[in-house]
Design a protein around this nucleic acid. Structure first.
Lengths: 330, 330
DNA sequence: AAGCCGACTGAACATATGTGCAAGGGTGTG
DNA sequence: CACACCCTTGCACATATGTTCAGTCGGCTT
């Protein structure tokens, strides 16, 4: 049996690399030499359909990378303005104003997933938060081969409901798969019931290991939550917070959260009680990551976004056009 | 009149930048968000045809860049072998064995033109030779915006026939246009009749300026000539060389040339008489350029290619598959 | 050996994209 | 103002690409 398994693995690897080789060649012929799929099929002694599939595979697996460069003399006015006002590099995703929130989120997530490849590289620790934005992104990641890269869960997810949302572990796994990276789970609830429990947990050596990883991230990736928007992000639907928690947040003046840590419009977090029980990294820790990518879609998140900007949490922002416009208009 | 011209230029620039803006947006929607052209047409309030054309424009003008990455663990065996044997980074262009020489040249040139973008950047001096390979490349360059970059002609072209081949100035202009670069022409014949004339010319200050530029190149781009192959490169058809010249080259053991400078199979050039009258840069000068890109297609050029490799002229090689295979086989 | 499974293929069809063409709008010219 | 010119547009058609489906193959189990 063992020998059989070994043999099978080798065969499969060969088959895969043969496929990759073909895909690479087809991609050259198609994208570099502008041959038609028909012509390629002829050269590779197969059918046109197979070439079509092979090319799809080549794109989906990141063999072919398509990038878009604005000419240097024509940076989008909005991106320019965001850069000047907030010292944040913005990617504005064009989305028509009349698009639904679901559409908008999907389209921003799709673009973000494709842009992400630029930021991910070998030998990095990449912190990933958890939420509907990250979930949508995780479904569109373009694979990119890396070595020795780790995906680190930023905040606990405990208590997940199955209402269509992804389990955090599944979400993280997708990131890990896409980049050939190890995944470091953080098996705690999103919020502890008691601050004391959190503190106790935080002293555990296994927890310390993860916190240590979090403090040495190269890239952090997150959305923002807006607890008081009409369409609250799903952390607020999943039953993580009680009515009393909302009241407390409201009283404390919180306008949003990043990885379950809440902040006010001015970016401050001091004295927001709930944070004592939250599992996400302290902003001082988060800000150690040289690149902090925030993905936001929908005007409803504007106040949260402003707060996160005020807190200096963001170095790179991926945002839909309408929200970007609203951000610079006011 | 002057005011009119000015006004028109502004309008046209606005129109262009408006077009670029649209193209950029369409490209985002198409390549990042996977919308169909129909959908984009709807979003941009125009017809599908216009979007098709806009996207063609976006690709042709370098707004959209498509690149192909081999996974790091699967570098083409041939490229790997060339790297090990010759310390040269190879790009092997897949071309079927039965392709005609014309096809082969075209396809290599097309690929090379697209690869070239990776090497060209702002504030560079780029030396460009002259021949059928460069001519074919020049017709497929993908524009890339640069500042303060110069295209420097490597060797004289005098005496051009109009038999379908491009005038050198036209060829250089295409490179210049593609990269928004100044073009430095070298208005001398390919070969002088008398070494003394060349030496005299070389003392002229205007010539010195250009020779100086040539000695400070960042990138050099050239093919190889093979005077004794069945299908001689067109330098040998244009009536540049006399029967006596060929005999001399043969006697001196020359196997090829780079920018009109001839060399033997072992890469040596000493004592090859014709070089006294040639206008291309001495190899010692050429080798100062940190990147020296050679584009070769067709097995007939194999001996020339070997010689150029022996001479250490090449740092980056773009070559068709058949020739690459022949190179490593023997 | 028979049978199941999954992965892959090519033919046929469905869809998406590219292009020739005639029409319209703007601009400079006589 | 009429005209020629050039550029752009959208339509209709031609072509290229994507996808479904039924069939094949090899590996594995029963």
């Amino acid at each position: 049996m063992i020998e059989n398994d070994g043999r099978e693995a080798i065969d499969r690897a060969d088959a895969v690399s043969g496929k990759t080789r073909d895909a690479l060649r087809a991609a050259h012929l198609y994208y570099m030499q502008d041959l038609t799929m028909d012509a390629i099929a002829h050269e590779l002694h197969t059918s046109r359909s197979s070439i079509s599939r092979l090319l799809s595979h080549a794109r989906a697996s990141g063999l072919v990378e398509i990038s878009i460069h604005s000419p240097l003399d024509l940076p989008s006015r909005i991106e320019q303005e965001i850069l000047e006002r907030h010292e944040v590099r913005a990617h504005v995703v064009p989305v028509p104003d009349h698009a639904s929130d679901v559409d908008r989120l999907d389209r921003v997530a799709l673009s973000a997933a494709r842009i992400l490849g630029q930021y991910v590289d070998s030998n990095q620790a990449i912190g990933v938060a958890w939420g509907s934005t990250m979930s949508a992104m995780s479904r569109h990641l373009v694979p990119k081969a890396t070595h020795n890269t780790e995906i680190v869960q930023l905040n606990g997810a405990g208590n997940v409901r199955t209402t269509g949302i992804l389990y955090a572990s599944e979400l993280l796994r997708r990131f890990g798969d896409a980049f050939g990276a190890r995944v470091q789970q953080f098996p705690v609830p999103a919020f502890f019931d008691e601050p004391a429990t959190k503190q106790a947990f935080w002293r555990e050596r296994s927890t310390r290991r993860l916190l240590d990883l979090q403090s040495r991230l190269d890239v952090a990736l997150f959305g923002v939550g807006s607890p008081f928007a009409e369409v609250p992000s799903h952390v607020y639907q999943g039953g993580y917070l009680e009515r009393a928690d909302y009241q407390a947040l409201s009283r404390d003046g919180a306008v949003g959260d990043v990885a379950t840590v809440f902040y006010r419009a001015d970016g401050s977090t001091d004295g927001i009680g709930l944070n004592e029980r939250a599992t996400g990294p302290d902003f001082a820790v988060l800000r150690r990551a040289p690149r902090r990518i925030c993905v936001v879609s929908g005007r409803a998140k504007l106040p949260s976004l402003r707060g996160a900007l005020a807190a200096g949490l963001i170095t790179d922002l991926i945002v839909d056009e309408g929200t970007a416009r609203a951000l610079v208009d006011a």
